[in-house]
Design a protein around this nucleic acid. Structure first.
Length: 394
DNA sequence: TCTGGGGTCCTAGGACCC
DNA sequence: TCTGGGGTCCTAGGACCC
C-alpha cells in the first residue's frame, strides 16, 4: 500500500510577482495591484513620480494583490483602495492585467504537469497535485523517511522557477486539507511537509479560521462557543458540534480538525455556471437610469453568450444579480424551455426574471449569470423564443 | 469617497409527480 | 375526501474560495 502524498502549490503574491518581472526596478517596494487605471506611457524609474501612487487613486475598486513590502504596511487583497491609500499612500498602484497573469498561469501549470500529471486546477495561481504515483515519491533515505517526495517537491519548485522566473510555496501531506494549510506555513518560497502524526503539533495551535471552508461567519460562531483553535475544535464533542452546526457540517468540522480528508485530486470538472458582472462608476437608479441599465444588461448578456459560445456550451437557466447601494444583493433567475447561447434570447429572459424587484433604491452592480450548462452539440438549433410583454424594468 | 469579479456548494420551501 | 412518503425540479439566498 502506497503512502498517499498530496501537494498544494501556491504561487507567491502571484499578480504582483508577475508585475515585478516586467518592472524589476520596483523590487523591494510596496506595490499593490488593483483598480481600473491604465499605466502611464513608458517605464519610469522606481522613484519617479510618474508611477501612480495609491494616494492619487479616486474611485471604486479593491486590492487584488499586494507585494510583501506592501503587506507589511497593513494592506491586503480585498481591501478597498481608498482605505488602503490611508495606510500606504506612497505605495505604487498598478492596474490588473489578467491576460498576462493567465499566460504565466499556463506556463507554470505546464511545467508542473511534466513532473506530476495528476493536477487539480484551483484557480489562476494554485493547484493540487497527487504525487502518490510520481516516480521516486515513495523513496526514503536513512536520515529522511520522506526524502523521495521531498525531492519531487523540490523539483516542482525548480521547474516553476525555470518556466516563469517566479517562486511558489508547496505543502505536502497525506491530503488536500492539510496540504492547503502546509503551503501557507512557510511563505514565500516555502516547502512544508508533514504526516498525519504531526497534526497535533503543527495544526492544532492554528486558529480555526485557517481551515479551508471555515470562513469569517463560521469562525465567529465558533469563537462565540469558546473555540478559537483547531485543537479546541478537535477536542469538541462531535454531537455537540452537530447540535450547533447541523449533522453534516458538524461532522465535517470534527473531521477537518483531526486532519481527516479523503477527497481525491480531481483533474476535470464540468463547468456549472458562468457569469459576467460589473460595478458602476456611480450608482444608477432603476427608473432614472433605465436606458443605461438596459444597455448594460444587453452588454452583459452578450458577454455571457460569447463566453458560452467559446466553450461550446448552452444554458438552460439565466438570471440577473443586482447589488443595491446598501450592498444588499438580490438574484432572480428563470429556466427557459430550451437551452441556448443566443445573446438576445438570454437578454430577454434575464429582463423577464426581474419582474418583482425593488425599483426605488439605487444600484451599484448588475450581473448576468447562466447555469444548467450542457454541451452545445447535444442540443439541436432552435429558433429564438420570443418573449414580449411589458416589464417594470427594461 | 469604504467593500471587484468569477466561481462552487449547500439549504430550504414549494410545485409537481408517482 | 383524506391520508402517506419519496423524488426531482425550480428558485432565492448565503457562505466560502481565489
Amino acid at each position: 500500500m502506497l503512502q498517499r502524498w498530496i501537494a498544494h502549490l501556491d504561487m507567491d503574491a502571484f499578480y504582483a510577482s508577475v508585475e515585478l518581472l516586467r518592472h524589476p526596478q520596483l523590487q523591494g517596494q510596496p506595490v499593490v495591484i488593483g483598480g481600473r487605471r491604465a499605466l502611464p506611457e513608458g517605464v519610469p524609474p522606481a522613484d519617479s513620480p510618474a508611477w501612480p501612487r495609491l494616494r492619487d487613486y479616486a474611485g471604486r475598486g479593491v486590492i487584488t494583490t499586494a507585494t510583501y513590502p506592501a503587506r507589511a504596511l497593513g494592506v491586503h487583497s480585498g481591501m478597498g483602495l481608498m482605505k488602503a491609500a490611508l495606510l500606504a499612500p506612497d505605495a505604487i498602484l498598478l492596474p490588473v492585467d489578467f491576460d498576462r497573469y493567465r499566460h504565466f498561469s499556463r506556463l507554470f501549470k505546464a511545467a508542473v504537469l511534466e513532473i506530476a500529471p495528476v493536477m487539480e486546477d484551483r484557480g489562476i495561481d494554485e493547484i493540487y497535485l497527487d504525487l502518490t504515483d510520481v516516480p521516486g515519491a515513495q523513496a526514503s533515505a536513512p536520515d529522511d523517511a520522506h526524502a523521495g517526495v521531498r525531492a519531487v517537491a523540490q523539483r516542482l519548485k525548480q521547474a516553476v522557477r525555470e518556466a516563469t522566473g517566479l517562486s511558489c510555496s508547496i505543502g505536502v501531506t497525506p491530503n488536500k486539507l492539510l496540504s492547503k494549510l502546509a503551503s501557507d506555513m512557510d511563505k514565500p518560497d516555502g516547502l512544508t511537509l508533514f504526516t498525519h502524526a504531526e497534526v497535533p503539533a503543527r495544526v492544532w495551535p492554528l486558529p480555526a479560521g485557517r481551515i479551508n471552508g471555515i470562513g469569517p461567519k463560521a469562525a465567529e460562531r465558533l469563537r462565540e462557543l469558546g473555540i478559537e483553535t483547531i485543537g479546541q475544535l478537535a477536542a469538541a464533542d462531535p454531537a455537540w458540534l452537530a447540535g450547533h452546526f447541523g449533522s453534516r457540517q458538524g461532522q465535517w468540522l470534527h473531521d477537518a480538525a483531526h486532519g481527516r480528508d479523503e477527497r481525491p485530486v480531481v483533474t476535470w470538472r464540468d463547468p456549472k455556471s458562468m457569469s459576467r458582472e460589473t460595478t458602476f462608476e456611480r450608482n444608477l437608479h432603476p427608473r432614472h437610469d433605465r436606458e443605461a441599465l438596459g444597455a448594460l444588461l444587453t452588454r452583459l448578456a452578450e458577454q455571457v453568450a460569447a463566453d458560452l459560445a467559446r466553450k461550446q456550451l448552452v444554458a438552460r437557466t439565466v438570471g440577473v444579480k443586482l447589488r443595491y447601494e446598501d450592498f444588499r444583493i438580490v438574484t432572480r433567475s428563470l429556466t427557459m424551455p430550451q437551452p441556448t447561447a443566443d445573446g438576445p434570447t438570454l437578454r430577454r429572459w434575464a429582463a423577464r426574471s426581474l419582474r418583482d424587484i425593488d425599483l426605488d433604491r439605487r444600484l451599484r452592480l448588475m450581473g448576468v449569470r447562466v447555469e444548467g450548462l450542457q454541451s452545445a452539440d447535444t442540443v439541436p438549433d432552435s429558433p429564438a423564443l420570443q418573449v414580449q410583454e411589458s416589464l417594470p424594468l427594461f
